[in-house]
Design a binder for these strands. Structure first.
Lengths: 168, 168
DNA sequence: AAATAATCGTTCGGGTACGAACAGTTTTAA
DNA sequence: TTAAAACTGTTCGTACCCGAACGATTATTT
């Protein structure tokens, strides 16, 4: 990863470019490390566990949500996964083409699409998820077990704060 | 975001599908919330601060790294930003086309490309970064100021752990 | 010095990723 | 009960995003 430059060095360079303007360096460090961590974990799992099944990260998240909550509406998948409906449509077309999910229009509400796993998709998840979870476990292996709960809480608080800012 | 289903519900559903297989639910909660948070912050900043300057997240990261460390080699930008060289090439073509950066081949080592900001790029960053930082500040506004340091450390530890797993 | 290996940035192909605009459906207002 | 508003998923256009393969350059072996 970075490692090239220390945090102190970075702070000095920022101040040199902005004069005496006040900058929230603590917040900067959090978001910077947030994206590094998310990227690192994602790339690692994509290169290892997911590559064996030719799945992208988002494709896996879609399968996971459907696996747990099927039958589930598209709208819910997008919310749970944290991506847009437009992205979801494309990913689901790929997954449907590979015979891992099915989409059927709801008879109760013609606007909704209900998504389920196929037998093939279910079989894949049953085999894949334990390996995926081992990867997750490894990612936090160097942290104190005791810290994991509050760590998750901090992350969740950031999400809640930011999403309360939405204008719609 | 999620909110639809509680963590307990999710755990029950996972166990129902995997029988008595042991799952690290704490690690699962951390990675799940890690991606939700990163996605939420990224989408928020893209929709607000970055949209005003027609910049994508990655484009901003590239500009930021170059702003701080110019002149800087492409390789370093990719490492600092946490994305691949292939991605970087495309983004830099866009930025160069908009007259925000310049690329010149190193005279000392013909393999390297040195990247700098143009005056236009520098002006944009000086105006943009304070607003961006306000967004970062807002994202952690509901957290105790005291927790920010250890929060950043936890995130960094995850990155270090995962990246030590790389095979190359 | 010549062959080999390592490094760097680009290209290629396929799959995301988004906002905006859209058409179809359902709900709400008037 | 029409008319207006809200909602859902898709399409469109543009911009990422990655691994793999590649050509060019430099470093290392022998």
């Amino acid at each position: 990863m970075a490692g090239q430059h220390t945090l102190d060095e970075t702070e000095r360079q920022v101040q040199a470019r902005l004069g005496d303007l006040q900058i929230d360096f603590e917040a900067m460090a959090v978001t910077s490390n947030l994206f590094r961590a998310a990227n690192a974990v994602r790339n690692y799992l994509e290169r290892t566990v997911l590559a064996e099944h030719e799945l992208s990260w988002t494709a896996f998240v879609v399968l996971w949500v459907v696996w747990i909550w099927e039958p589930v509406e598209s709208r819910v998948i997008a919310e749970e996964g944290g991506f847009s409906k437009a992205t979801l449509t494309g990913v689901m077309q790929t997954l449907e083409g590979r015979g891992l999910i099915t989409r059927t229009r709801s008879s109760k509400d013609g606007r909704l699409v209900l998504v389920k796993l196929t037998a093939k998709g279910r079989k894949m998840m049953k085999q894949l998820f334990p390996d995926f979870n081992k990867g997750e476990s490894l990612a936090v292996a160097d942290l104190k077990r005791n810290d994991l709960g509050s760590f998750a809480d901090l992350l969740r608080a950031v999400t809640v704060t930011v999403e309360s800012q939405r204008t719609n």
